[in-house]
Amino acid sequence: MATLSSAEQKDRGTYTPSEIEVPARTAWPLVLAFGSTLLFAGLLTSVSVSVLGGVLAIAGCVGWFREVFPHEHEEVVPILADETPITTERRVVDSFPLAIAPDQLRAWLPVETYPISAGLKGGIAGGAAMAVIACLYGLISQASIWYPINLLAAVVYSRQEARALTPEWLNSFHPWMFLIAVILHITGSTLVGLLYGAMLPMFARRPIVLGGLIVPVLWSGLLYSTMDLLNPVLGSHIHWVWFIASQVAFGVVAGLVVVRQSRVRTHENMPFALRAGIEAPGMMETRGEGENRS
């Protein structure tokens, strides 16, 4: 193990030492390794090879032992002068434009986000827009606003039960089906709204493109591949153009509502004591005081 020479120990903390002790070169590990290999190789060739290997291995062990006992054999190496400074040509570093404090150049992104209420509002507004489009589709295609509502609520029916549902039944009002559809729709809309509230600040440049177009299309693609499993009735009656239109309506309205809300600071950039709600004098050291103290 490399150790400090006596000169270095004496000068540690004040000067760069002029020499350093490092482990001395030795052939004994090589001799031991070669001997061990021959010891094994002799099993496949000749006993004399194993005997030679054994002798070399013992010699290697003894030599190695004498290398480290009673004192580790070391050699002194002079220190070579190296005056090369540690520097960079890239002195200028782009600073974050929304720095949270004048002297703080970095931050956890996003620095600000929307409150939970923004996501709830967005979800409810988007859900209303989606419902309008869906009912419009029902009126145009089946002359009944209950048609899309019954299709959504039909998630409770299995594939076999779904076969018994007639067009007349799907176009008529059923209180339980209405209740199920409303619960499903409100729950889904508010959850997705909350997701929008959390995600839109991460895509700050074009939130409406993300929320109004990309996410609805991705979501529709996911449902396209799983609809027959999730809701066989809806899967067999769905009109995908109208469905995607309703998803986009949700996305655009929810996105617009969310981005119109005022933002709040995220907690990640605050000191731990502040995040933990600890109020005690002296807990937080101001940077100015710290720098002046020497």
Binding site: M1, A2, I20, V22, P23, T26, W28, P29, L30, L32, A33, F34, S36, T37, W64, E67, V68
Partner: peptide
């Protein structure tokens, strides 16, 4: 400044090599 066991290091290398 080096591995914890420099001689073991050499021994390990030569074993692998052989």
């Amino acid at each position: 400044r080096d591995m914890a066991f420099p001689r073991l290091n050499a021994f390990s290398f030569w074993l692998s090599a052989f």
